[in-house]
Computed example of a mutant assay.
Amino acid sequence: MMVEEIKLIDYRNYKQLQLQFHPKLNIFVGENAQGKTNILEALYLCAIGKSFRTSKDQELVKILKDHAYIKTTISKTTDKTEIEILINKESSKRIKINKLSLTKYGDLLGNLNVVLFSPEDLKIIKEGPSERRRFINNDISQILPRYYHTLTQYNKILQQRNKVLKNYKGKTLDLEVWDEQLIERGAWLIVYRKKFIKRIAILAKLMHKKITEGLELLEVQYDSNIKIKEEDELKDIKEKFKQALKEIKPLEEKRGLTLVGPHRDDLIFKINGLEVKTYGSQGQQRTTVLSLKLAELELMRGEVGEYPILLLDDVMSELDKKRQNYLIKNLKNVQTFITTTMMEPLNIKSQEEYKLFSVCNGEINRLSLK
Rank of each mutant, 00 (worst) to 15 (best):
K7H: 15
L8Q: 13
I9P: 14
N13V: 00
K15A: 15
L19W: 03
E31I: 08
G35Y: 11
T37F: 08
T37H: 14
E41T: 02
A42R: 08
A42C: 11
L43P: 00
L45T: 05
A47V: 04
I48C: 00
G49E: 07
K50T: 05
F52M: 13
L64W: 15
Y69A: 13
Y69S: 12
I70C: 02
K71A: 14
I74V: 14
K76D: 14
T77R: 12
N88L: 08
K89W: 14
E90H: 15
K93P: 04
I95R: 09
I95C: 10
I95F: 11
T103I: 14
K104E: 10
K104M: 09
K104Y: 07
L108N: 01
L109D: 12
F117I: 14
D121E: 15
D121R: 15
I124C: 04
S130F: 04
F135G: 07
N138W: 06
I143F: 09
P145A: 01
P145V: 00
Y147I: 01
L151C: 00
N155D: 06
Q160T: 15
K163H: 11
K163F: 10
K166H: 06
T172H: 06
D174I: 12
D179Q: 13
E180R: 12
I190N: 07
K194L: 01
A204R: 03
M207F: 02
H208V: 09
K209C: 11
K210G: 10
I211A: 09
L218G: 00
D223V: 13
I228K: 09
E231F: 09
E231N: 13
L234Y: 09
L234A: 02
K235A: 12
K240L: 11
F241R: 15
K242E: 05
Q243G: 10
K249Y: 10
E252Q: 09
D266K: 04
L267D: 03
G273L: 03
L274M: 03
K277H: 13
G280L: 04
Q284M: 10
T287H: 01
E298T: 00
E298F: 04
G302A: 10
E303W: 07
P308G: 02
L311P: 06
D313N: 01
S317M: 09
K322M: 14
Y326G: 06
L327T: 10
F337T: 09
E344T: 09
I348P: 03
K349W: 05
K349Q: 12
Q351K: 07
E352P: 06
E353N: 12
Y354E: 08
L356Q: 00
N361Q: 12
G362R: 05
